[in-house]
Design a protein around this nucleic acid. Structure first.
Lengths: 112, 112
DNA sequence: CCTATATGCCTTTAACTACAAGGTATATAT
DNA sequence: ATATATACCTTGTAGTTAAAGGCATATAGG
């Protein structure tokens, strides 16, 4: 039932979250919508992806969480740490590597 | 011990094998080296990745295998089927989608 | 008033995948 | 005699995404 592990998605949630949070702090539900926004509705990450990832990143020290009351609601804001920005840099490098490699390996005249 | 699930690699072995085999037939050991060659030594897929993938693609009808004696050796040559080329097209589309989405979501001024 | 939708957090389950490590056998070079 | 290259293969496993579900409050529509 669950269409798990679709092609080319490994590492993408982590990269996107770190990218967004390196710009400004956000909370989980906000990230769900921001991911759609910044990818032009191409990539949609459900809450079942976002929250576990946020917790894992926090546990590894890449993110710092702050619970904050906003009106009647309570939100958990996340921001990147130095470690998180280092992790982001590493992921960007890796992404660039794979991307370039697949560009290189492209099949000439693939349409025909 | 096993560095499993490296970022951005899901789907890459399948895409590379289908790309290479859509150009000409090859055998497993040859593919191990060709992948390195066409990716500029960036991506190196071990035999523990190549062979299971070839078997899976054959089982799904994407590849046709032909055992052939070459000198004293025996090699299993693989070629793409119509189904395999369809699968390749689908993977190319998906790759393009993700790639574009991550380009869109790129962080401005990421170096600073 | 009631019901559906939006907000906001969370967990459990499961399928899938890439990879390392190991195994077999022959040929060739040192 | 030993190491390296060729050529095939399997097993085990860790790590990942995603769906599906659950909880609670607020707001809008009928």
């Amino acid at each position: 039932m669950a269409k798990t592990n679709p092609p080319f998605m490994t590492g993408v949630p982590e990269l996107l979250l770190l990218r967004l949070l390196s710009q400004r702090e956000m909370y989980g539900y906000e990230l769900v919508r921001q991911v759609q926004l910044v990818t032009g509705e191409t990539i949609k990450l459900g809450e079942g992806v976002i929250y576990p990832m946020l917790h894992a990143l926090q546990k590894s020290g890449a993110l710092k969480a702050t619970r904050r009351d906003v009106g009647a609601r309570s939100r958990v804001y996340y921001e990147t740490t130095r470690k998180g920005r280092q992790r982001l840099a590493k992921l960007e490098t890796e992404w660039s590597r794979i991307r370039s490699a697949l560009d290189l390996a492209e099949v000439p005249n693939a349409s025909a």
